[in-house]
């Protein structure tokens, strides 16, 4: 597979290591009262879609960026890749804007 690194262009997937669903970006607050309830699905439950999947890849043999890659799990087609940091920033902006309230 080839991953379209947003800074480095197409890179062989062999340079990366894979973590899993990009929902792992949304770590709950460990000090919240309901932390036990929020951490269980965060750590253990997955949508596991047959189709588009947003997922985390680490450019371990490269620039050490964590990427969010959008990939079809049925065809392996990759629709895009972003720096995970950018995705987090966008998530937060939209949350702060009230979209995800």
């Amino acid at each position: 597979m080839l991953i379209p690194h947003p800074l480095l262009g197409l890179r062989d997937a062999q340079e990366f290591s894979y973590l899993g669903d990009a929902s792992l970006l949304l770590r709950p607050d460990g000090m919240a009262e309901n932390a036990a309830e929020t951490f269980f699905p965060y750590v253990y439950l997955r949508e596991n879609p047959a189709g588009l999947h947003r997922e985390l890849w680490f450019h371990e043999q490269g620039d050490r960026s964590w990427l969010v890659v959008t990939r079809n799990t049925v065809t392996h087609e990759i629709l895009g890749a972003e720096l995970a940091g950018d995705v987090v920033a966008r998530n937060r902006a939209s949350r702060d804007g009230g979209d995800l309230a």
Binding site: L19, L25, E60, S65, W66, G85, V88
Partner: peptide, 13 residues
């Protein structure tokens, strides 16, 4: 190290 980068870039940028 991979995990530390994950924490830095993905959890607490």
């Amino acid at each position: 190290y991979r995990h530390m980068e994950f924490a830095r870039q993905c959890l607490w940028p």
